[in-house]
Design a protein around this nucleic acid. Sequence first.
RNA 1: GCCGGGGUGAUGGAAUGGUAGACAUAGGGGACUUAAAAUCCCCAGAGCUAAUAUCUCGUGUGGGUUCGAGUCCCACCCCCGGCACCA
Length: 806
Amino acid sequence: MAGKYDHKEIEGKWQKIWQETGLYKTSDDPSKEKTYVLDMFPYPSGEGLHVGHPKGYIATDIYSRHMRMRGHNVLHPMGWDAFGLPAENYALKNKVHPRVAVERNIATFKEQLAHIGFDYDWNREINTTDPEYYKWTQWIFLQLYKKGLAYQSHEPINWCPSCMTGLANEDLDGAVCERCGTTVEKKSLPQWVLKITAYADRMLEDLDALQWPEHIKEAQRNWIGRSEGSEIEFAIAGHQEKIKVFTTRADTLFGATYMVLAPEHPLIFGLEKNIENQDEVAAYINQASQKTEIERSAEGREKTGVELKGIKAINPANQEEIPVYVADYVLWGYGTGAIMAVPAHDERDFVFANDEKRNIEIREVIKPGEPLNDEFYKRIGIDKRCYIGPGILINSGEFDGLATEEAKKKITEFVGGKLVTNYKLKDWVFSRQRYWGEPIPIIHCEKDGAVAVPEDQLPVLLPEVESYQPSGTGESPLANIAEWVNTTCPACGGPAKRETNTMPQWAGSSWYYLRFMDPHNNAALVDPAKEKYWAPVDVYVGGDHAVRHLIYARFWHKFLYDIGTVSTIEPFARLEFLGFILAEDGRKMSKRYGNVINPDDVVAEYGADAFRIYEMFMGPFENTIAWNTKNLVGSRRFVERIWKLADSVQETDVEALETELHKTIAKVGEDIESFKFNTAVSSMMIFLNAAEAAKAIGKVQWATLLRLLAPFAPHISEELWATAGNSGSVHTASWPVADQNKLVATSATIAVQVNGKVRGTVHLAVNASEEEALSAGRAVAGKWLEGKEEKKALYVPGRIINFVVS
RNA sequence: GCCGGGGUGAUGGAAUGGUAGACAUAGGGGACUUAAAAUCCCCAGAGCUAAUAUCUCGUGUGGGUUCGAGUCCCACCCCCGGCACCA
């Protein structure tokens, strides 16, 4: 007779034993098959974990325990992504050094995680703010620099006036800072930029082979934004300069009746003397620069612009002179910052040109390849004079009659243009004017310019400062430490200054998964043999970060592949998307709303095992679902009923449970593999219901059930495994194998239908003949067949009987 | 606007084209208890019924394919997510 189920005692006891015996220590045994399961490592915030954080960790824990039981050598590590603005802001607010705050927060996180009973190998813990770690982050930067993929730029960048730092495009949410919601400004600052665009094509192409959720792949495709088109030059009448445009519709060139330059286009200044309405143009440009990105791109906004009077461009297709405008609907940051405008076949150009005072010709050059009836116009849904689809060329000289696709190539060739590919993806602005990040390992020499810090001098340690308050001037707080900034040039020995900007938060997380393979290596980022064994990450679990982290990590990984550091072209073979847990009120869990649920409290009251089961049973893993303490009771009851079932264990197996047990074995195994934890749990519940109904379970069946339960509820299954007299840990026992012969029941209840409507059921042996089945079916459905002509009778063994009558 | 994913009881959700609503929560009834909690047993999509049986309807809407559709096809509506004046 088992005693009362005391989760505190049981869970505390086993957590201690597992730690003492090193049950989860990972070895680099190359003779065993490996599985590398990884969570997106957390940022250790001052608020600690809420119940949403562990959801993904529980999933990887179950997966890793299951693979270990299947005999794999499992790498399931945990670490801390601790650089970046949140840590620094927290530290500023609470008047402690970020390092101290981070250490304290990590201790809290670890304590919280420990209570949930994860199988992490803590010997492999990493922390991105540890100099032994960021030495290698800096090392990667140097390799990028050496290959010309890290360069200095003076282009204006996005600047967050609240965070007082420059930002990358990926750090923006539309036109506001993703972190604080402040509208960003443009600011000219010298900075380091990483040439992520050099990898755009490979990042796009290699997506296809990844086992990732479609929406994440799609988000990456959108972000990279490849578009194939042509670059075509337009001469300016009476000038040497030319206007270069990017277009995806070179086939419409004969319909280009004006051009537009972005307000930032430098050519406007170059032509200044020849612009007759200089004042008007200058005023427009000034006005445009005052607008925020949001204002500029507001949907349905009237298109404004000013003609550059005295300037005419020459359409290279037909040598016609056409007007040139400056208008802010053309963006300086995309393509060449200038467009050829074809009002008949581009909605935006149409809206701009379809204004009487501008008096711009709308010239049709594409005829749709289908009948021009009302239905067609309804479908294209815009003004009949603007058709944006493909078609057949008209009014295009010798190209008349060609189809769009062919004409694009031929016309580009005809006017001496070239086919090019454009991307929305921008190079990664990599400098941050803040304290809490990896120093960029560069020295600026008066004579030699930017010089890489020699690798043997890494890491460049982040110095102590008096104030890590950002200056807001565009200089990082490091610039105030003269004794650190002033140094000698490694190349010439002359006076030089250190780079004072730091790396963005996303640097350390762009390669951390590699360090877990070999966390204590001082001579290399990762030992090649270990990398070859463990790479790639087999299953990567996390939410959000569809673009940023995943695109940065893929970029760095591909670069590391090119320089021979890693052996795979992609870092994460499979990605499982984590649906968040909302608060009970349906809102995001946040201190601000006072709706945070701390896992410590849940574990204390219901136990880690019930907590783990509940988070997995809530619903599909990828769904966002609100926390519900009432529902949690069900998982607690399940755990308690398992505990009580121990009293019903008998020597001999219960024959009636065999089919159900083997179904459960198959189901739980498949469901863990495919991250369908909710149905894995429900299948164990179904089996438990059956065992309770039978009022008995054989000891072999019991041991099997405990092994199935072990990944989900590691403590209670370990306890019951031990009390049942099994040797060793249940977590190193072998995973049960479903017996195919037992999976199929010998008989089944199947439905009898008449004309597809269920009219009854029959219990039939699975191997019953068709005659037997149909006659049994007729007996049940007799009433419905009476007086009707039976046209057809179907029997699908084990599934259905259906009579078709008239 | 383009792209991706969805719409199933009161709720979270199940369902290789084969008895829709498994499993769980909340709910109703009963047992135990002085009582309550806990536990155990039973009921439970909607309609019609005093109730049972029977029947009818039922997976966003309308069509279609099929012996049979939540599942496949077509059109539409709505929700969530990504991108968006990207030429």
